[in-house]
Design a protein around this nucleic acid. Structure first.
Lengths: 191, 191
DNA sequence: AACCAAACGCACAATCTGTGCATTAAGAGG
DNA sequence: CCTCTTAATGCACAGATTGTGCGTTTGGTT
């Protein structure tokens, strides 16, 4: 995906990458996402691979973790459910469910450690948002600007996950979608 | 601040903490925020302190970096400029200027590595937001809910800094504040 | 002045990092 | 099927880092 494009996608390279990624995931799960419990040699042993391979392909542990994270965090493909609201819920709610957990939050943070990976990921997210809009327009629905979808729905949710460890229920994703689509509770309650 | 509360605030402990924090900051600045260029012994030497001291007080390098970051990221105190808009601009714009830079973004990420520190920081941020509202209400102004201030202004800005490396000018903080205060461009441009 | 607990420095074994050099395997072309 | 080419991997190892047991120092207290 947004890992290093392998010139030989079917061969040993691919097997090694899969083994290493799997090793990272299982080790993280075993230690509840504690980074200090991981090391390059540990991952290498678990993957049945030499440490030097990891150093060469990924540079260091944080970047390996970032690569694994970005693969794990791919949101589901956008699907046509018949309405923009439906599409957004089907696309974003499972995503939030997964990454608002303790382990999911750690995965998010791992990805943030590598700036290049993170930007690629943002671009991918943006692509999915554009796809949502394309589907809506094809149905004749009005669609908010991509920028607004990010700013009103995605950003506050991710921000609150990262900074305040909020759970999926606290985050109230459906309300945020309603807010975006101008059909929910008032957007700015003054007091 | 939100580092370990020292039972002996005036003594050697305080001096050591200051020396270590300063050492981290200067080393990070010298290496443009490259974490791989730092290590516990390096910081210890620079601070004129033994490595074991750092291991004991902070546990490991990521947590030390998180502690330093959270101290560095304190937003200015909220001040009364005569209007909510003015208060918000005076409070948030310099903050964004500082942390939208490459180095600032790295500091943000360092803080995120420690969940406890991050939550404390969120609480502090929330406190400042409440202070903004208190001042506004004391002047007889209407004030948006704290939750909305975070979701409309703070979250999108921080999200875009973290995930898309946007610069202060791209972020358009003033427009976001206008959006919050319902006096700016339409909140949701449909197309 | 004497005491106590917290904080620190020292020393050191275990582990990890990262790189030169040899070896293997995937894919291309005959 | 065989050979060739080269990217990818394994091996070995010097240097650096991690993290802890133990003795010493410091600062607040009585």
């Amino acid at each position: 995906m947004m890992t290093t494009a392998t010139p030989r996608p079917g061969g040993r390279s691919a097997r090694v990458q899969q083994a290493v990624h799997q090793a990272v995931r299982s080790l993280l799960a075993e230690n509840d996402g504690d980074r200090t419990a991981l090391s390059v040699p540990l991952v290498a042993d678990r993957a049945g691979v030499n440490s030097s391979t990891i150093y060469r392909r990924w540079g260091d542990l944080p970047r390996l973790l970032a690569a694994v994270a970005s693969n794990q965090m791919l949101p589901e493909q956008v699907e046509d459910t018949g309405s923009l609201r439906g599409d957004m819920e089907a696309w974003f709610i499972p995503y939030v469910e997964e990454f608002s957990s303790d382990l999911g939050r750690q995965v998010l943070r791992d990805m943030l450690a590598d700036g290049a990976v993170t930007r690629d990921y943002f671009a991918l997210m943006n692509g999915h948002v554009e796809e949502l809009r394309r589907l809506a327009k094809a149905r004749g629905e009005a669609a908010p600007a991509a920028r607004d979808i990010i700013d009103v729905v995605v950003a506050p949710v991710i921000y609150r996950i990262l900074f305040n460890h909020e759970s999926a229920t606290e985050l109230n994703v459906q309300d945020r979608i309603s807010l975006l689509l101008n059909t929910g509770p008032a957007s700015s309650r003054q007091s």
